[in-house]
Amino acid sequence: MYGGGYIFEDSRNGSDSAEDPRKLEDFEARIQAGEKIEPMDWMPAEYRKQLIRMIEQHAHSEIIGALPEGTWITRAPGFRRKLALMAKVQDEVGHAQLLYSAAETLGKPRETMINDLISGKSKYSNVFNYPAVTWADTAIIAWLIDAGAIINQVANSKGSYGPYCRALERICMEESFHLKYGHDNVVFLATGTPKQREMVQDALNRWWKPIMHFFGPSDKISVHTETLMRWKVKMASNDDMRQKFLDMYVPKIWELGLTIPDPKLKKNEDTGHWDYTEPDWEEFKRVINGDGPCNKERLAVRRRAEEKGEWVRRALMRNAEEYSVPLS
């Protein structure tokens, strides 16, 4: 799962001026015509760089995203939920696997990407730096965070890079099951005992801010992404995705009798858009740069897992077989 909160590098002074203008023209014409770019095709260095960055961040989000929900597998109440949550989180790890493979087609090995994750050099979705405090948090995550991820990923699946698009098509299919599972889970809590209702309302209150952050900074303050949009790397603006999410899910949340902790939230009949309290983008930046409630814990867990498993990876290495065949 992943939102639009990519941190693209500002490409205004991008290096595409250094590219062969004829090749660049052909490349852009292909994208205009709706063709997919494949691993062996010519592409501008800047395109490759930004794609690696984006797909890698997406892959990291899947494995880090497995942690907050994963800790609830052992506590899931009853067989039905336990089995479903196991399958759900397993899917997320599978998404990471697919995405790392897609990024590898651009020339960066999985091991290097994971090292960059652990060292803090590359980022992952901001939402996973918040804690899943109770069982109800996992329900809200599976419903609303996965819902947000679908909006973003469906848009990206229409992008220009073939391997990423194909990976996303499969991922989106699985995400739609996650969303159904999450919704079912929230419905049971919201229509359950007073204690269950209280749990799910608290969880929604906790998660509303991360959810609003999920799609990334407001277009007004985002780095310029015109080139990335022309190259179909970035497919929708952060604010458009946020509006789409609010359109689809606010009514469903209210339908369940839950309240949303933003007094300003309402549909503006004149503009047709949702008005809301502007999320705190300073906090967003702070958290993405390492200072959130769970950043340290998440990376420490990941680092421990990597260290613990190092001997296993060593035992799998055969010098002749270092290149892994892409899955997508």
Partner: peptide, 12 residues
């Protein structure tokens, strides 16, 4: 082991 395997394939 979910999320903590020595390689992703083993998590899965």
């Amino acid at each position: 082991w979910t999320g903590l395997g020595p390689i992703l394939e083993e998590d899965i």
